[in-house]
Design a protein around this nucleic acid. Sequence first.
DNA 1: ATTAATATGTGAAAAATGTCACGACATTTC
DNA 2: GAAATGTCGTGACATTTTTCACATATTAAT
Lengths: 212, 212
Amino acid sequence: MEQNKIPQATAKRLPLYYRFLNNLNQQGKKRVSSKELSEAVKVDSATIRRDFSYFGALGKKGYGYNVEYLLGFFRSTLDQHEVTEVALIGAGNLGTAFLKYSFMKNNNIRITKAFDADWEKVGTDIDGVPIYHVDQLFEKLEDTKVVILTVPATEADNIADKLVQAGVNGILNFTPARITVPSHVRVHHIDLAVELQSLVYFLKHYPLDTKE
Amino acid sequence: MEQNKIPQATAKRLPLYYRFLNNLNQQGKKRVSSKELSEAVKVDSATIRRDFSYFGALGKKGYGYNVEYLLGFFRSTLDQHEVTEVALIGAGNLGTAFLKYSFMKNNNIRITKAFDADWEKVGTDIDGVPIYHVDQLFEKLEDTKVVILTVPATEADNIADKLVQAGVNGILNFTPARITVPSHVRVHHIDLAVELQSLVYFLKHYPLDTKE
DNA sequence: ATTAATATGTGAAAAATGTCACGACATTTC
DNA sequence: GAAATGTCGTGACATTTTTCACATATTAAT
């Protein structure tokens, strides 16, 4: 639990920095300034410098940041040297897309198991990820602590309860339901309809030229 | 452009309120207090009252809010009386999931066209949504101003340019790329890998019991 | 060597967001 | 109809996040 002085807003940007540093490194770039990085990730350069400064002095004045060093630093900060296994609950359209979509190319998080309520799907696998029945959560989840929830909204609360009982403490919730969990469980909501609606709202009600 | 005094944080919550008010209304509930709503949407009740207050005095002391009235108010505020058409660019796994996933049940936003680079898909439709070729953006996009971007990351910037030229001013970007657009175009990023990584980071580095 | 250019790290200010707590008023109860 | 209860709307305050702007150090150029 070490450094919990890092602002949440900063913490949410770390994976983003990490990904772009990886890109830069693969391109063979040796150094990068906060200004350059800013243009790539679309975050103000002062914000980037401030974010980095929470971890100490990572750069060099007049030079910028050493890509390899910074990458290594974030790799360990984000625990990317070890693989984190997550489970996917609900192998419907969206869930299946996540299993097929290898959006995990640049990081060490892997979806290693999936669960579904449909016995037709149970026993099969999608892109190598085995599908179990949701009733098998307790036996099969083992020590997976983080799950991606892509079940129908009506099932969300019910399944969430079971997940919590099975020891899960992190849920990435893609259902429109706002699930109820004990306070030791962290839920991040990604609400596709809300995102789209709020984008439309901003377009209609906010002057253009203003940024998110 | 009327009321741009509403804080962005508030604006982002409006669609959420709207959805839950819809639920309550369908359940036949006539009144709701900020406390009840708070439990449903998991937003502090004081925050809810403050949010609502930006629009004037919508409630009644000692009573709460009239569900039907509030719903009507938000319906017009969110322009839900008219249908907003959006296009989907990239009918791959994720894009197809969005087309099939009717996450638009409770609102008036419709995906009416899709575009893909694969000629095999062009001419077919997914759940009634016709698929055109990305080269046909100019002819077929017509006056669609908002798009959901689910193309491969490598194509993101290239396609974004074309979209902007075709008159799009709102992009919901699901690619890991941070696209570059003129300042009159609004982009909201939903970065699945980043969301998952930051959830994992929070779990490892922040004391439990703390909320997002 | 000297100068010019570059770019960090941060104190301080500003802006944005969230929360507390209470006066005022409406509703409900007795 | 009086008292008790419930709940809004908001001023004041607290917290979080962003941004400015510059002293300081490093590099690059001449």
